[in-house]
Design a binder for these strands. Sequence first.
RNA 1: GCCGGAGUGGCGGAAUGGCAGACGCGCUGGACUCAAAAUCCAGUGUCCUUCGGGACAUGUGGGUUCAACUCCCACCUCCGGUACCA
Length: 890
Amino acid sequence: MPRYNPAVIEPKWQKYWEANKTFKTPRLPKGRKLYVLDMFPYPSGDGLHVGHPEGYTATDIVCRYQRMRGVSVMHPMGWDAFGLPAEQHAKKTGTPPRTTTEKNIDTFRRQLKMLGFSYDWDRELATTDVDYFRWTQFIFLVLFDTWFDAQQQCGRPIAELPIPPDVTEESDEAVERYRDEHRLAYQLEAPVNWCPALGTVLANEEVVGGVSERGGHPVVRIPLRQWMLRITAYADRLEKDLDLLQWPESIKLLQKNWIGRSTGAEVDFFVGSFQDEDGKPSEKEYHGWRADRKLGGWPKKPGDEVLRIYTTRADTLFGATYMVIAPEHPFVERLTRSDQAAAVKEYCQQAARKSDLDRTELAKEKTGVFTGSYAINPVNDEAIPIWIADYVLISYGTGAIMAVPAHDTRDFEFAKVFDLPIIPVVDPGKSPDVPRDDLLAGRVAFIADGTAINSGPYNGTPTPEFKKQIATDLSDAGLGRSAVNYKLRDWLFSRQHFWGEPFPILHELDAEGKPTGRLRALTPEDLPLDLPKKMPFDATHDRPEPPLGKAPEDWLYVTLDGKRYLRETNTMPQWAGSCWYYLRFLDPKNDQALVDPAVEKAWMPVDLYVGGAEHAVLHLLYARFWHKVLYDRGYVGGAEPFMKLVNQGMILGENGEKMSKSRGNVVNPDAVVKDYGADALRLYEMFMGPLEAVKPWSMKGVNGVYDFLGRVWRLMIDDRAEVMQLNPAVKDAEPTAEQNRVLHKTIKAVTQDIESMSFNTAIARMMEFVNFFNKEEVRPKGVMEKFILLLSPFAPHLAEELWEALGHKTTLAYEPWPPFDEALLVEDTVEIPVQINGKLRGKILAPATADNAALEELARADAKVAEHLAGKTVVKTVVIPKRMVNFVVR
RNA sequence: GCCGGAGUGGCGGAAUGGCAGACGCGCUGGACUCAAAAUCCAGUGUCCUUCGGGACAUGUGGGUUCAACUCCCACCUCCGGUACCA
């Protein structure tokens, strides 16, 4: 009668844990602490996906295990709840995003509770909670109030920013402007996707092939005022501090490459204040400039008379045969000669129309246009033509390059298209895999190191030395200097959405209601700034502005100290809320601070952070950046938030393809729990394979672990009885030596496997235990109890039920984890393989204590081995005690 | 193109220098049963076999070693990330 029935026991124990607050975490840890964090989910309308419980089960096992080891465990859960879908739903149906979001959260919470995770639910939070985003806004104010001191490599209060005397003298407004230019949060005009037909600004993913995803209306890119965060200031620290972290090396490398630090040189090419008929700068003016530079040195900001470029290959300066500037470069107009004006204008307009995507997609064929002007190469005084091409990006380096077609593949392709000269200046040397003759003839590009040729006084210098030498020489002449660049860009921090955190910023208005350009930040006391309660979600706009531009006037306009202000109408991106949630979990109800510093110091950093690899770069980089700013400004005690990181692998559908609605291979956790129970789902997700691996789902596999749980049940419970009673084999008896050995072997393996997060093999070892004890007529109660404890982190409901059946009155969640006794593991007799020339020929039984000579003797005595040895000469014998014997024969 | 990860039975996977295929799925046979379900037991890499055993086998080719899935070199395939970053 009492069959294993998860549908009954799982809700029973979930209620017990909830009623008894079994997993409530104290405000401060008692003894050793462990902070185990899951990447919190975005509560989508589709509900939980089987990918979610994968990482969540892994962390839950670690937490339950560590609690049994007496560790104070912090294990919270919450919701990354801002997001576009709720807003799109609002546009369609008029349902406020908050309503949709709360409904979705309810579904997610129910589903997670159904899986029996040991979260401290009292710490639950959502990024959309006003009490939460109050502090997100607070952190924005900190960013706004911080500038980066490059000397000290540290963020400091804006009030401490040294103001140059000429700025102070100019006006108070100039000082304000100077400060605004140096804040970590600053404004910039950046292109957005404006769809006039829909009257709205679209996110990149809402634009497909140049038209809106919804309705297929044309989309244009036009500049709009945006908020940026100066993450590039922290690039060096974000790169260096990776060394402190126990993250997978591949993820560290990913971040390193994303930051993309490169070292090289900036060099000024003279273009002159006016040009001769032929577009070339006047020689006289050039020489005057050289003399000035020699005396005055390198200016921090280049004047109009030079084109400043960045290169990592200053050693190839003699091979520069032309220059390229980006279509958006400020010099485009100045450098364009009248006869080229029409062509240049046409080209730049075309480039502006292309989205970033188009620009990379059409990257196959190089395009460009000649400006008609020339610059002078400072190393050989030669005038070289200046071109405009979109293969040079305005956002990297100085937006201008010297082109060395012989030693750069992109420059080479461009030179081929426009028939520009190619001068080799690096000799690769004679190596069979380098087409040296083709290079010297200008038929291929060679980008590696070599020895300088065609480089005047530098001929014969190896590339690395050349780089150092020329940097010094250029610096002495005031023509260049060493420089560092990053691929990492500043973070575009504003979105044109309603459903996001409003910025705590006001724009001052003049008498006519026009913005004066002056900003006013709200004070922390003014927070939270909530979204407007009443909002026309379906409003269309006749000019590109965020949805909040149509917010009710009583929200939009503010009068303070007799001045009228317009609220910032952009909102923050979804990343904002997830950048610091791990701090708020520690002190979720605090209304005085984002987190109590004492609590923060006691629990941080996160010891284990588990989530999908899709967040390997952006989320983790953004969160690390915020954490460093908070550290610099004294809000947190450490420089890094996440000490150890593990990425769980994706779970594929049964057909081995990515799970998706359109492929029809989505597995719903509700259905799995209904048919097999939460313990089976948890166990299967861990049994599928290594946590980090990508692996396909199998319902038959779920059934397999379900059968295992049923065997565990029958191991201890009499399922033929009418009432709940123990299997008669379970007795108060002393275990035999063999039973003890099996038990302790299992304890050892499971313990070590949990420590190394090899959950699949831990489960395999428990299966072996059950297979063994199933055959035992007597199953000592003490052994069964220890096994239940081992199983409990994996299948907590079943374990609690069996624990109770064995007569315990309280939860096993804090029972001491069973220790293993190494002495009990030792076997008297071991089976040892015997090899001849590395091939297995026999097996011998030997005392575990047998020495090498004894083992060799036993091996020779084995009939099969003797047969193989007959008539051969043993050249060498290798004996590894307790492992194997190998005879090398001739 | 560049960077990263992975290739082992019919399938998911185990073994990180020492008996390849633990554990599970599937399959085959058996027990129980009037029968079925459930459960339990046994077998299960491929080929050859005189039924003793033998040969081959961890993507491919080479190397190091008494011994290689494991270490080294070259290559192939698949997956993920990234994309003109000077």
